[in-house]
Design a protein around this nucleic acid. Sequence first.
DNA 1: GCCAGATATCACCGGTCGGTGACATGCGCA
DNA 2: TGCGCATGTCACCGACCGGTGATATCTGGC
Lengths: 220, 220
Amino acid sequence: MANTATSPKAARDTEDRTRDRSRTEDAILRAARRVLIESGFAGWGVNALARAAGCDKQLIYRYFGGLDGLAEALGTEVAHDLEAALSEVRAPPVTSYAGLVAAMLEALLQVLRSHPVMQRIIAAELSEASSLTAPFAEARGRALGAWVAKIKGDFAPPHGVDAPAINAVLIAAVQQMVLSSASVGGFAGMPLAEAEDWERLRRTLRRLVVSAYADPCAPD
Amino acid sequence: MANTATSPKAARDTEDRTRDRSRTEDAILRAARRVLIESGFAGWGVNALARAAGCDKQLIYRYFGGLDGLAEALGTEVAHDLEAALSEVRAPPVTSYAGLVAAMLEALLQVLRSHPVMQRIIAAELSEASSLTAPFAEARGRALGAWVAKIKGDFAPPHGVDAPAINAVLIAAVQQMVLSSASVGGFAGMPLAEAEDWERLRRTLRRLVVSAYADPCAPD
DNA sequence: GCCAGATATCACCGGTCGGTGACATGCGCA
DNA sequence: TGCGCATGTCACCGACCGGTGATATCTGGC
């Protein structure tokens, strides 16, 4: 029993795509996402992917040049997702640098939470700096850099504050929280499951940003 | 060529431990740490471990009950490391709740940075909630809980502040920073390699803690 | 001296992996 | 019509995996 079903085509997508390369490529890419979400990089091999896509593994080599090429293709796709999501950060009333950073953190939180593939990739980056995660890491760096360059000039951080470091710390916290919520359901005793939990995190982040960037004696 | 060397005993620890169960168990445990540091959980299998320990894999089954038992043994060991390190948090002049939290964060940063095995385990937790990481997660939770219970009562957080959430966020940031430094050498454009980089992070964390817990108009 | 048991090693199993070469099939074009 | 090529399928390889039963070797107690 190669699979649980009687036919090896059981896992194949309903759409008929015989003799259609672009359709097959798409099926492989979607299988790559699905397997990555369900099994992580541990189960991300040519055999499993071909099984999930309902095609022969040979096609992965032919169309993508093996696992590395497939990872690269998937990485750029996901990076585009991130880019698109960040480009829509137009939190309504941004009147200060702190407000801008807070809006960015919330947007990042939203994107990450709704994108399990991104979570998997980032988690893998923390475990192994392999050739599979490298392409995405680079693409992601470009996306974030472009976003920062775009908003530059609108507002400036207060003087005497290491804004890049503060922002990095808060972004790191967001990332860790989302990853931990996906695998353990919370972090350090703070649950991260219900909507109210995330709202609590949102408030906490905003408070940290505001207090860090506020002029003393000018609270809120 | 089962190994690069001529003799299969090349990787064996220098100490002669034939017919000495406790010595063999220790060799296996140390090999488990070493392989975990060098190859991560991906290469953490009975074959590789036995090879690294210079013994037969059968002994891993006999003495530890397989990989799961070995992971449990290693997990409790590492949890003890964490417990011991946290119990020594006596940052000299702690005069406020903020100072206490800052000292805790610095201690955690120090412990994590100097403990690559802990980093691997935490990174694995974020990728897969497998039976290998579960025992350590539980032990770590106990260690942190014990620490919190110990310091309870010395100082109290200001009113109207969600201290558990703030602390969780900052702990998450520390964790993410250390993990990211190990695999990528930095985070979000902030380098984390030289001593000055870590000092910068330390200052940033302290500033965040102080500003978050400070009474307004009573800075520093 | 000798035996019982602890300790360690070996050989082998079925299964999955990544990777490759050979082969079948159908489409488009001359 | 039939040829050429893109597309898809199959069979097979060597390597490694986790796991287990049988066997060798040494030690301590009688």
